[in-house]
């Protein structure tokens, strides 16, 4: 009965999606079919949304990487929400694991893993920092960078059964990084005209110190994501004796 329901629903979904795909057209971002209208003024504008991103990313945001420009600048509000989802999840995780105390004993790792992870840890952290600092120039950014940093701490947790991050430090990092993100948005409201609008100089496009608020936000996101993911793993590992 259950299996039949599963097969029927799966087949239905498969068929719906494949059928819908037959109507998906190949996209050309110079075609006039996709010219957008201004939702506030109402008139037709002679460009497509994608075309606008590709044409104007450099001079509007100072970033070379268009994906970064969209994530942090054009649709920065989504990213604020996304960071908040992760924050909510990590709050929920620490809240729910609060009541569970007893944990299984873990075996000590072997010498190579223990010593090796000590040597590798600084390099992992450095790579993570490199990735989120260069978010506006290369593929990557705050989220991958933060995950790399968290993976460094995960390695330490695997190697040392008694290794725990200080809960208070993790939560302070989270709070301060989140605060910086929101405050930069509000400064945009004060110094420019919109929330999250860039209010710094764009600088020399293509250099490390350029692109206005993008690197600052990405550094905050990098710290926040790193702290949140390591906090989640720390909680999943158990409570410090």
């Amino acid at each position: 009965m259950r299996r039949m329901a599963g097969i029927v629903l799966a087949a239905l979904l498969f068929a719906c999606i494949m059928y819908a795909f037959t109507f998906v057209k190949t996209y050309d971002y110079n075609s006039s079919d996709y010219y957008y209208t201004d939702p506030i003024e109402g008139g037709k504008v002679n460009e497509t949304v994608t075309g606008h991103y590709i044409e104007n990313t450099k001079n509007e945001t100072g970033a070379i990487n268009a994906v970064t420009a969209i994530v942090v600048e054009y649709r920065g509000f989504d990213t604020l929400g996304e960071v908040t989802v992760l924050f909510t999840a990590s709050t929920g995780v620490s809240m729910l694991l609060y009541s569970l105390h007893q944990r299984r004993k873990r075996r000590e790792a072997n010498l190579i893993l223990k010593e090796g992870s000590k040597i590798v840890l600084p390099f992992i952290l450095l790579t993570g920092a490199y990735i989120f600092i260069h978010g506006h120039l290369t593929p990557g950014g705050g989220f991958p960078g933060g995950s790399v940093i968290a993976s460094g701490f995960l390695l330490m947790m695997v190697a040392y059964p008694k290794y725990f991050l200080k809960e208070s430090r993790v939560s302070i990092t989270e709070s301060v990084a989140g605060m910086i993100f929101v405050l930069i948005g509000m400064l945009g409201l004060v110094f420019a005209s919109y929330f999250l609008e860039n209010f710094l100089s764009l600088g020399d496009v293509g250099r490390l110190f350029s692109a206005g608020i993008i690197p600052i936000i990405y550094i905050a996101i990098g710290f926040k994501v790193g702290a949140e993911l390591s906090g989640i793993m720390n909680n999943l590992k158990g409570v410090e004796e």
Binding site: Y36, P39, I40, E73, R75, D78, F195, L196
Partner: peptide, 16 residues
Amino acid sequence: LYEIIAFSPPIGIYLY
């Protein structure tokens, strides 16, 4: 009431 966030829509996001 409109509130543009970062860039004018539909390039950016806005609240309506």
